[in-house]
Amino acid sequence: ADDEVAKLLVDAYRKNDEDKLEEVKKRYNISDEQVKRLIRKVL
């Protein structure tokens, strides 16, 4: 599931889509710190 979330985050990140990032964060209840970590893992 982590990889799936990471893909969604990276996708939103690449598109610079703040709304999507927020949506994913809320849906999976993850912190900014986790977001950064997941994005770093993929990029």
Rank of each mutant, 00 (worst) to 15 (best):
D3H: 09
L43N: 06
D2C: 15
K26C: 05
L9Q: 00
D2A: 10
K41W: 07
S31N: 09
R27T: 09
L9G: 00
V10I: 14
R14D: 08
S31L: 03
Y13P: 02
R37F: 04
L21I: 14
L38G: 01
A12H: 03
E18N: 15
K15I: 08
D32V: 04
L38A: 05
R37E: 15
E23F: 06
D17K: 03
K15V: 09
K41C: 08
K15M: 13
K20E: 11
D11H: 03
V42Q: 10
D32N: 07
S31E: 04
R37C: 12
R40Y: 11
Q34W: 09
E33C: 06
Q34C: 07
E23K: 07
K7W: 13
D19R: 13
Q34A: 11
D3V: 10
A12F: 05
A12Y: 07
D3S: 12
L38T: 05
A12D: 01
D32I: 05
Y13H: 06
R27A: 10
L8Q: 11
V24M: 10
R14T: 13
D3T: 09
V10A: 12
V42T: 09
V24W: 04
K15G: 09
Q34L: 09
L38Y: 04
K7A: 11
A12L: 09
L38V: 09
V35K: 01
D11F: 00
K26V: 08
D3I: 10
R40K: 13
V35N: 01
S31A: 04
K7E: 09
I39T: 01
A12R: 00
D19G: 12
S31W: 01
I39P: 02
S31F: 01
K7N: 09
V10Y: 14
K36F: 04
L43S: 06
V24R: 01
V10H: 08
E23V: 05
R37D: 15
L8W: 04
K7H: 10
R27V: 06
R40D: 15
E4F: 14
E4P: 09
N16S: 07
K25F: 01
D17I: 04
V5T: 04
D17C: 04
K25D: 00
K36M: 10
E22Q: 11
V5R: 03
V24G: 00
Y28A: 02
D32S: 06
I39V: 08
D19V: 13
D19Y: 11
D11L: 03
N29S: 07
A6E: 10
K36P: 05
Q34F: 11
N16W: 06
Q34R: 05
V5Y: 06
L43Y: 06
A6M: 13
V10M: 13
K25R: 08
E22T: 09
V42Y: 15
K7L: 10
V24N: 00
R37G: 10
D19P: 07
K25I: 05
L38I: 15
A6W: 13
R14I: 15
V10D: 04
E22S: 09
L9T: 00
L8F: 03
D32K: 03
V35W: 08
I39F: 03
D3N: 10
N16Y: 06
L21G: 01
A12V: 02
R37L: 07
A6I: 15
A1E: 12
K36D: 14
R27I: 09
V42S: 09
V24P: 00
V35E: 04
R40W: 11
V42K: 07
K7Q: 12
Y28T: 00
V42L: 14
E33Q: 07
V24I: 15
N29G: 14
K7V: 06
N29W: 02
R27C: 05
D19E: 14
K20T: 12
L8D: 04
R14L: 15
I39N: 00
E23N: 05
A6V: 14
N16Q: 10
K41Y: 08
D11G: 01
K7C: 12
L8P: 01
R27W: 05
Q34N: 08
Y28W: 06
S31V: 02
L9I: 13
S31D: 10
R14N: 12
A12W: 05
D32P: 05
I30V: 07
R27D: 04
D2E: 12
A1V: 15
A12S: 03
D17F: 04
K26D: 05
R40E: 15
Y28H: 06
R14V: 14
D11S: 03
K41R: 10
A12T: 02
K20L: 15
D2Q: 09
V42N: 07
K26H: 07
I39G: 01
L21K: 02
K41S: 12
V35Y: 09
A6R: 08
K36V: 11
E23H: 05
D2G: 09
V5Q: 02
L21M: 12
V42F: 15
K36R: 12
E4R: 10
R14Q: 14
L9D: 00
E18P: 14
K36W: 07
L38R: 02
E33G: 06
R40H: 14
R27L: 12
I30M: 13
V24Q: 01
L43V: 07
R37T: 10
D19N: 12
L21Y: 05
L38F: 04
I39L: 13
L21R: 02
L8M: 12
R27H: 08
D2P: 10
I39A: 02
K25T: 03
V42G: 09
A12G: 02
D19A: 15
I30E: 00
K26M: 08
K41M: 14
Q34M: 13
Y28P: 00
D17Q: 06
L21N: 00
D19S: 12
S31Y: 01
R14P: 02
L43E: 08
E18G: 12
V5W: 11
N29L: 05
K36L: 09
E23Y: 07
V10F: 13
L21P: 00
D32R: 02
S31K: 03
K41Q: 13
K26G: 05
A12I: 04
D11A: 04
I39E: 02
V5N: 01
L43K: 05
N29A: 07
N29F: 04
Y28R: 01
Q34P: 02
D19F: 11
K41I: 10
